[in-house]
């Protein structure tokens, strides 16, 4: 790490607005992703944060890890609070009453639970109303803050504390992960993307693009959680890469309705490479894994079709 300053400075901005010393678990990719977002955005942004791991680990009074204005109100309303901040700053600027004349990015951030379940209505309302903001969902595939309960973003076959695998129900979670990226896109907003801190430059580029896009943008960020996924903390980054390499979590963007892959691989890894290191999938049978492979292939193919359609439209 001796020459970190020499190399790192060329790669990622040095600026930090998320201070060290927060209380996240070792190897938490959620905080890793947030830090990359913070590096991208610098200082001129305001955050509305939903209740969840991210809020808890960064804001225990009298401490706060936030060096930018930050507000937490409740669990399901980050999108609504951010709508208010956006509308408030905008009208005050128009009336000459807001002291800052630079462009300020408004960020709403929430976990998967705060987005795809309890916060879905507020998210939909905010996207539909067209607020100029970026909503980032940090998807660790369960309610981690309350002790790893299932959400509708928990994948098929994962065990959580409320979707345990048992005699009568050997699979664990038996529903399919809700595709909120498509739900966001269905609002006809100008920018939607998936992202992963395992691909930091792809993530930062997307955050930049989302912030620069007028109107609402939605980023669905895949954040491995060693604690909840029952795996070693040092695997958080690599498992995020394997998720992309195995087509489990493809990285793409939807700009004005046009789909584009942003990270592609020639040879995809089998899903078993992704499932094996994680304790939450330990109980799965070979048959289960084959089934998951089929599901993953199918939804990836469906995505590729949309990408192809977009290319045809562009031609």
């Amino acid at each position: 790490m001796e020459n970190l300053n020499v190399y790192a400075a060329k790669l990622a901005p040095q600026q930090e607005s998320l201070a060290p010393g927060h209380r996240a678990c070792q190897g938490c990719a959620e905080l890793l992703a947030v830090r990359l977002v913070a590096k991208t955005l610098g200082k001129d942004y305001i955050i509305a944060n939903a209740t969840g791991c991210l809020e808890i680990v960064t804001s225990s009074f009298p401490h706060s890890a936030w060096e930018v204005p930050w507000i937490h109100v409740a669990f399901e309303n980050a999108a609504a609070v951010a709508s208010g901040v956006e509308a408030g700053v905008k009208i005050l600027k128009k009336k000459g009453k807001y002291p800052v004349d630079r462009k300020i990015t408004i960020i709403a951030q929430a976990g998967d639970g705060g987005t795809v379940d309890i916060g879905l209505q507020a998210l939909s309302g905010a996207l539909e109303r067209g607020h100029d903001m970026v909503y980032i969902c940090y998807d660790n595939e369960a309610y981690m803050n309350t002790g790893i309960q299932r959400s509708s973003a928990t994948p098929y076959g994962a065990t959580t504390t409320t979707s345990p695998a048992g005699e009568a129900s050997p699979l664990g979670q038996h529903t399919m992960k809700k595709n909120v990226v498509e739900i966001a896109a269905a609002h006809n907003i100008p920018y939607v993307a998936t992202a992963s801190p395992s691909y930091p430059f792809d993530l930062m580029q997307k955050v930049r693009k989302a912030a620069d896009t007028p109107g609402p943008a939605y980023i669905h960020c895949f954040v491995p959680c060693p604690t909840g996924w029952r795996m070693a903390p040092n695997l958080a980054v690599s498992i995020g890469r394997i998720a992309v390499e195995s087509k489990v979590f493809p990285l793409y963007e939807i700009e004005n309705g046009e789909y584009k892959m942003t990270v592609t691989h020639k040879n995809h890894r089998p899903v078993i490479d992704y499932l094996k290191p994680q304790g939450r999938f330990r109980h799965l049978s070979e048959g289960n894994i084959a089934e998951i492979q089929q599901q993953v292939d199918k939804s990836y193919d469906r995505l590729l079709k949309k990408v192809k359609m977009s290319q045809i439209e562009l031609d």
Partner: peptide, 21 residues
């Protein structure tokens, strides 16, 4: 701001008021 529920109405109010409006 014509919100989609009263829960959001009050949440938006939190945001606008915190912004200083």
């Amino acid at each position: 701001i014509p919100v989609e529920s009263e829960h959001s109405a009050m949440s938006v109010c939190a945001g606008t008021s915190a912004a200083g409006a």
